[in-house]
Amino acid sequence: MVLEYLKQEFEQEVGNTRKLLQAVPAKDIDYKPSDLSWTMGELAQHIATIYYWYVGTLTQNEYDLAADRLERGDVRDIEATKDLFERNVLAAREALNALTEEALGQEWTMKFGDRVLLGPLPRGIVTRGFLFNHIYHHRGEMIVYLRATGNKVPGLYGPTYEDSKG
């Protein structure tokens, strides 16, 4: 039952993420709010990359980020980032659809080489916290970037401020 809810949420939120990435304008791709922040292009690419992590999280008990070789493309090319997102969503959906309720309870660990970054934790907790919530966090940042640069923020859960000023 939990798995079915996760699948439904995944599909709904993929649409919201797509709307947000489509709102990223090429003209502001180098914007960043501070020297410590990512550029808008780097943030967009990170959001697209999180969907790639679904496969390692949902199909492996130990996921080593150091062993991953994802070709991301140029962070200054928003079209390449949107293509990356779409490819990663297809793979993520496939991994999520192959998952079982039993697998949600299995222990999972994220590593970078020999260093443990996260876990061991039940895969279901990791799916919610590391995958789903991680995307939502960075989407919130992207909304701030869009507003700071004077761009329209798409409605993800209803009308936005800009929509009410029509």
Results as ranks from 00 to 15, higher is better:
residue 157 Y to Q: 11
residue 163 D to Y: 06
residue 24 V to Y: 02
residue 161 Y to R: 02
residue 166 G to L: 03
residue 15 G to S: 11
residue 70 L to H: 14
residue 31 Y to S: 11
residue 42 E to T: 09
residue 44 A to Y: 10
residue 79 E to W: 03
residue 96 L to Q: 05
residue 99 L to Y: 06
residue 74 D to C: 01
residue 114 D to W: 09
residue 134 H to S: 12
residue 98 A to D: 15
residue 86 E to W: 03
residue 21 L to M: 06
residue 149 T to R: 04
residue 36 L to R: 14
residue 66 A to T: 00
residue 100 T to N: 13
residue 47 I to H: 05
residue 150 G to Y: 10
residue 128 R to L: 14
residue 82 K to V: 13
residue 106 Q to A: 13
residue 23 A to V: 08
residue 83 D to M: 10
residue 44 A to D: 12
residue 127 T to E: 05
residue 32 K to R: 15
residue 71 E to I: 15
residue 57 T to C: 15
residue 122 P to H: 04
residue 23 A to W: 05
residue 157 Y to K: 12
residue 163 D to G: 04
residue 107 E to M: 02
residue 72 R to K: 11
residue 78 I to V: 12
residue 117 L to H: 07
residue 19 K to E: 04
residue 119 G to H: 14
residue 136 Y to F: 13
residue 143 I to M: 14
residue 120 P to G: 07
residue 9 E to N: 15
residue 38 W to D: 06
residue 124 G to T: 11
residue 131 L to G: 02
residue 69 R to G: 01
residue 152 K to W: 00
residue 54 Y to G: 01
residue 29 I to Q: 12
residue 136 Y to A: 12
residue 139 R to A: 04
residue 7 K to V: 09
residue 42 E to N: 04
residue 43 L to S: 03
residue 157 Y to I: 11
residue 72 R to H: 03
residue 129 G to D: 11
residue 85 F to M: 02
residue 164 S to T: 03
residue 106 Q to E: 15
residue 3 L to S: 11
residue 26 A to Q: 14
residue 104 L to E: 10
residue 53 W to A: 03
residue 139 R to Q: 10
residue 104 L to P: 10
residue 47 I to Q: 06
residue 91 A to I: 05
residue 153 V to L: 02
residue 164 S to G: 00
residue 160 T to W: 07
residue 139 R to V: 04
residue 166 G to M: 02
residue 30 D to W: 08
residue 69 R to A: 13
residue 124 G to E: 07
residue 116 V to M: 12
residue 116 V to Q: 10
residue 88 N to R: 11
residue 140 G to W: 02
residue 41 G to Y: 03
residue 80 A to N: 04
residue 160 T to D: 08
residue 89 V to N: 07
residue 58 L to V: 10
residue 47 I to V: 15
residue 24 V to R: 02
residue 80 A to I: 05
residue 36 L to P: 01
residue 157 Y to A: 12
residue 90 L to Y: 00
residue 106 Q to H: 13
residue 45 Q to Y: 13
residue 85 F to V: 02
residue 38 W to T: 09
residue 1 M to S: 14
residue 145 Y to R: 12
residue 131 L to T: 02
residue 68 D to Y: 14
residue 96 L to I: 04
residue 108 W to T: 01
residue 164 S to I: 00
residue 35 D to E: 15
residue 101 E to C: 04
residue 152 K to L: 00
residue 62 E to R: 08
residue 33 P to M: 08
residue 94 E to C: 08
residue 156 L to Q: 07
residue 78 I to T: 06
residue 59 T to A: 13
residue 104 L to M: 13
residue 95 A to G: 13
residue 4 E to S: 14
residue 108 W to H: 08
residue 150 G to K: 10
residue 144 V to W: 00
residue 34 S to P: 11
residue 59 T to P: 10
residue 114 D to R: 14
residue 164 S to M: 01
residue 32 K to W: 08
residue 156 L to R: 04
residue 154 P to A: 01
residue 130 F to W: 13
residue 144 V to Y: 00
